[in-house]
Each structure stands twice: as structure tokens, then as C-alpha cells.
Amino acid sequence: MNALELRNVKFSYGENAFAIENLNFAVKEGEFVAVLGHNGSGKSTLARLANGLLEADGGEIFVLGMPLEQKNLYEVRKNVGVVFQNPDNQAVASLVEDDVAFGAENVGLPREEIGARIDFALKAVGMEKERHATISRLSGGQKQRVAIAGVLALKPKIMILDESTAMLDPRGRREIIDVVLRLNKEEHITVILITHFMEEALLCGRAVVMNRGEIVMEGAPAEIFERHEELLTYNLALPRIGQICKGLREGGIAVEDTLDIEKLAEEIARCVS
């Protein structure tokens, strides 16, 4: 079954403004998909449409098979968690524990259940020790992990990370990616990772490239990065390793394209010897 499906979705922010004409996009349950795109490509709009923060002007959106409508918005949001970009703009409470509880409180869970969910969520993101810490004193990566825990407390089936790593340092980014990879593998949560870091896309099972509100490329990350000329036209760069391959070839060392560091090392050894 598809965890999320958009059929012929239309959306516009107003006349002469950014618009999605006809978007078709589906994510299978348990999948880990990267959505790539330059600024203004519509990737964040996609996230907002998927959990009803924005209402589509036309077309249909299905979440776990149920159509997204005004009346089941609540059900949809329970199942589609979104982690946003800015680590400072997502917490409602000052303390980690209180913030993680927020979503669970909103859906009216009993106290004991909320406690259990906080335990589960903080453990899943590796923040059990910071349970009683003040959020404003945490690092960016930790704040985002708290935000993920806050979403996890609702036990969503789908998690969308809307450029959640964009404002973090490399270490924070790594923390977040590790957490979502594990959630995908162990908790079988469907993950949609919206990003403009190509390295992150390499870790996903499938990548989708958006440009001007359309999906222009789709496939395994390796396939997509093979078409680097095309990527450039959408203002996207290759991941670092891809750039190195390209550079080496231009410099006269005829290595095969690869996205695997070990392989590249072998390639270089082969060409040089």
C-alpha cells in the first residue's frame, strides 16, 4: 500500500506566484525517499500539502489509503509527522520532556500513555539523558532530535523532514540522519527526507528531484547522480564524491562513475597503476 499518494495535485500561493500544476507522487510504506530540489522547487510545499497544513486547490491526496479532507485532518496529522527546518521554531515548551509531551497531550492520551511515549520517543532519538534539560541550552542537532521525538510521540506512520538538517553543522546533520535511518529500519516508519544536501540523498532508497513544482527526475540515487548534466540544469550539484569522479576524468584520469568511496579508491588505483 502507498503510505502517501498525491494524484494530480494543484496548488498555488496566489496569482503570479509559485504554483504546482499537476503533481503526482507516491511513497510506499516503509520507504525512505529523498526529495531534492533547489530553493523554490516546491519541495516544502509538498510537505505542507501532505499533512494538511496547506489545502490543495485540486487533485487528491491519500494518506495510508484515506483521502485527506478537512474532516479527517486530525487523523492525517496523527499519522504524518513533520519536522521543520529551524531548530528554534518548533518547541512549544521550555523543557525537553514537556515539549515531547505536547503532541500526545493534544490528541488526548491518558497520562500513563504519554509518559510511556516520552520514554519511547526520547530513547529512539538517543536523548533519554536530556529528558529534564532546557531546550534553549541544547545544540542544534539535539534540538532537532527533540523535535523528532515530539513527532514520534504521536506514533506517526510517516515522517517528513522538511530540510530539517539545513541549519545544522555536519555533526548535527549526521545525528539526524542516523536517527531517521534507524527509525526507518527499526520502527518501519516511512521517511520522506526533503533536503538539498546530495550526500544525504545517497543514503535513501529512492530519490525524487523537483523543479518548479514538478517532479523531473525519479529513481535510485545512483541512477539520478549519473545524469549529472541534467541535475545541473535544475541547479543541483553532485555529491562531493561525484564531483571528485568528474574532476578526475576531466583531469585525464578515466575513472568510472561511482558513489562508493571504496570503489572510487580502487578505480583510482586501477587508473594510476
Binding site: R77, V80, G81, V82, V92, V107, P110, I114
Partner: peptide, 16 residues
């Protein structure tokens, strides 16, 4: 972020 986490002012919430 609050909307996405099911906040509805009119709805009854529980307290942890």
C-alpha cells in the same frame, strides 16, 4: 509546527 502536532485550541487536551 503546532498544527502538525495536532494542536487544536477548541479540542480538549490531556495534561502530562
Amino acid at each position: 509546527a503546532m498544527d502538525a502536532r495536532c494542536y487544536m485550541a477548541s479540542k480538549k487536551r490531556t495534561k502530562y
